[in-house]
Design a protein around this nucleic acid. Structure first.
Lengths: 259, 259
DNA sequence: TCCGCTGTTGCTTAATGCGAAACACAATGC
DNA sequence: GCATTGTGTTTCGCATTAAGCAACAGCGGA
């Protein structure tokens, strides 16, 4: 090793590459930086930093900014990320988390995404305690009468939400919120709390809780929900279950690159 | 050099890093790959490929897939891209292209993005021939009565578009398309041709052409438009101008990571 | 059980990538 | 005007480093 200071136990074998990645991270943090600046931060010689930047530039991961001698992250990174995002599927990332939660709670866990004026379940795992094994995957549910839907509505851009909510909302049970104004009030609370609940508003005897799943850019892309029979998933149990639901949703968000 | 075959003139100095980038690109192409597969494609020994993957994995740029022994691009890439995207501003990338086009055509060139039920101009350069130096930047324009707006509508997800188009559209001049049905027909043509036109539909005596700007993932994120007085930017000149407009828009798209 | 296939890990060697110093080019100060 | 100090860039010789080999370890299927 060149200099004495071997910071944190260096497990990685290929130092060159390791440093190159550091260069990328430095650029990500600083936005743009010069050779010398990077060399100092890496603790290596200018020439070393330069060579690294040179390779990264030739490969398009880094490019020179307007100002001569300033480097910044390049399009190559974006292109790579495009390929990553494709396989960074909510289904793939969410499935294992849902399974764990379903096992822990014994209830059914779903992940739903917004699709026009409805929500579509794209992941479902059925907990051990679930009586009926009804398959909700692919099923469209109304946004105003489900906990997932409320989450999606609550974190939606206002413009978009406005277009999705007619003044009177279709009734499904006698608990369904049918007034847009009334629903809007609840959505404010949903953002506040970080989760939504639904008590027999879609089907009699069916309760649920949902929390938002975020993408790497912070936008809410899905809702993770736990649902079960009202007699077991009682109103008073909901807050406690909501906490676990939110944790799971955060875990999926992390896997999607958020935070 | 290890083996005799030094493929293409290797300018890059740090081979390790160069190969590491190749690994990333291979993973981007294949989606997921094993050590051996990558080693073969790189033309190096298994152990070499493994060590490269090891570093990249430790730094989060690569992660192991479900199936043991399969590697894929990781969240680190997405995080880096997030930092890139921040500075990958449409304004920054679009400005120089617009300036060139404005100089070439002598007309005013704008880039607009969708914002709810309107379009907002975020870049503007005024051509030499432009009489009036009116500033449109930040100004909101109706989607149905501008060429930019038509482009944005035309390439928008159908659900979203439906919510933005009431049956009757506000009239601005006697050429304004006020029927949603009629507009929809035109939008089909816009997608077909790859550009939209607008002849005195917003203001009398003002014509324009617009083409879509795409982001790295292919989605249309903005519209680049050329506008000028009807007596100079005549209806018959529009197709020719449209071609140049589309080229410029493509150039911006490329800068945003598309293609 | 064996074989073939993975990915993983020491070890040895020389190729590689490193650091020092020299160079080129700009911008600043005197 | 020139010198000075700051960039980024290039060259070159030395020894660190990373490649290749080969043996090991898991796994799955024949």
């Amino acid at each position: 090793m060149a200099n004495s200071t071997n910071r944190h136990i260096n497990v990685s074998s290929v130092q060159s590459v390791d440093r190159a990645v550091s260069v990328l991270e430095i650029l990500a943090r600083h936005g743009a930086a010069g050779v010398t600046e990077i060399a100092v931060e890496l603790g290596v010689h200018k020439s070393t930093a330069f060579r690294l930047l040179d390779v990264l530039e030739n490969r398009g991961l880094v490019e020179q900014a307007e100002e001569r001698g300033k480097y910044q992250l390049g399009l190559g990174i974006v292109r790579l990320a495009g390929a990553t995002a494709a396989q960074l599927d909510i289904v793939q990332e969410g499935q294992p988390v849902c399974e764990r939660l379903a096992e822990e709670l014994g209830e059914t866990v779903n992940i739903a995404i917004a699709d026009g004026d409805g929500a579509v379940n794209v992941v479902q795992t059925i907990g051990a305690a679930a009586i009926t094994g009804y398959n909700w995957v692919g099923r469209r549910t109304p946004l105003h009468a489900t906990s997932s839907g409320k989450v999606l509505l609550a974190f939606m851009p206002p413009d978009q939400r406005r277009n999705l909510l007619p003044r009177r909302l279709p009734r499904h049970t006698e608990h369904t919120l049918t007034s847009a104004a009334r629903l809007r009030e609840e959505l404010v609370a949903v953002v506040e709390r970080g989760y939504a609940t639904c008590e027999e508003e879609l089907e009699v005897g069916l309760n649920s809780v949902a929390a938002p799943v975020r993408s790497f850019n912070g936008s809410v892309i899905a809702a993770l929900s736990v649902s079960g029979p009202a007699f077991r998933l009682t109103g008073e149990r909901l807050p406690a279950v909501a906490a676990r639901t939110a944790e799971a949703a955060d875990e999926v968000s992390r896997r999607m690159g958020f935070g």
